[in-house]
Design a protein around this nucleic acid. Structure first.
Lengths: 196, 196
DNA sequence: CTCAGATCGAACCGATCGGTACGACCGAGA
DNA sequence: TCTCGGTCGTACCGATCGGTTCGATCTGAG
């Protein structure tokens, strides 16, 4: 039961429950692919409650994207951290985690990129840009630890591979994109400090 | 004057004019970001005419995507062809052309990928998949001419770079994505036949 | 000149959209 | 026990959606 019936019990709990329940629905159907009425039905909450917590549908969307961005960044960071100290192993772990994600049946690409593709509003675009900043920071740490000659360049190239693999997996080949991107990433990593 | 007033003059001309005028509007606003009424206004045609030529809004969208896909594939192919025989030069030309595109003010990512992100219908998804097939074929030709050990692998890695650069350009950094992807592509190309 | 067909513009359709209002209910704190 | 605030369910709002219809107008073919 996501939302307990009547309650002063816990104002913030309701908000969190709505957010959690709405996330997969909005991801599956697309931000404009479902109306507020049906969304409330699927989430198990009344329109009044949803609107008191988030003001507008867009308010819910933005809150959902912020949370989702944090989750995905933490998830990828954890995958890298668990792989140990070696930059190559951490980079491999990142793309292995992505490959696992691509083959999940609900996979539909990156929520933030999808959102920014559909909505041109600055708020959504800014969330997406910051989301990519987060990925870029992780990749740059790996590039630095690997002793890359130009860590910023390598990090952005790895980001291009990451997002490219996600797009290709969503629209062309979900079974190989992650593996192929991993191999490419390792090649770039190796080539990046050939002179050292 | 895109569409001459009354006319048996040329039924197919009208269709082509609608397609051509609708393409940039749908690209700028998004497929669901504009209604049929406003779309007709911008195109300069009545609803009846549009519906007679395309049946439904989705019919127009699909026809537009088919045409756009052919155009983009031809455009990229021509950029490669004009660069001469060297695989590296052709590959560079591809990413240089993309970089030019990214910095156009109207740039909003790949129409086909954007469309498939918004509409889950099989027809649209299939157009997008075939669009990526076209890119993949071009990249594989280059990989083959370069004597790559595994041309299929290299081609898909290059496709990942191509689409990744497009996504990163659209949502993060339109000024550098193409250049960085080109450098990465050349590195992969060089590494692909290191044993030969 | 007449006819057929392509087009326009506007009215119209039912459905759905995001968002609001209201009466009833419930549960915790005083 | 009473109050207060979060919640539900439903009805409702105006706007817009995709799509249809119709009479008027224009043009090229016969």
């Amino acid at each position: 039961m996501p939302v307990p019936k009547g309650s002063t019990i816990d104002p913030a709990r309701t908000r969190a429950a709505i957010l959690e329940a709405a996330t997969p629905v909005l991801y599956e159907r697309g931000l404009d692919g479902i109306g507020v009425a049906e969304l409330c039905e699927r989430v198990g909450v009344s329109k009044e409650t949803l609107y008191r917590h988030f003001g507008t549908k867009n308010g819910l969307v933005e809150a959902m994207l912020e949370a989702r961005s944090r989750q995905r960044n933490a998830w990828l960071r954890e995958a890298a951290r668990a792989a140990g100290d070696s930059p190559a192993a951490r980079l491999s772990a990142v793309f292995d985690a992505l490959q696992d994600w691509y083959t999940e049946p609900e996979f539909r690409g990156c929520s933030m990129v999808n959102a920014a593709t559909q909505h041109h509003e600055p708020a959504v675009r800014s969330i997406t840009a910051r989301h990519l900043d987060g990925y870029l920071a992780l990749l740059k740490e790996i590039a630095l630890d690997a002793g890359a000659e130009d860590p910023d360049l390598l990090a952005e190239q790895l980001l291009i591979l990451l997002e490219g693999a996600t797009v290709v997996a969503a629209h062309h080949d979900p079974r190989r994109a992650g593996r192929h991107a991993r191999a490419a990433a390792l090649t770039l990593l190796e080539a990046s400090n050939r002179g050292s």
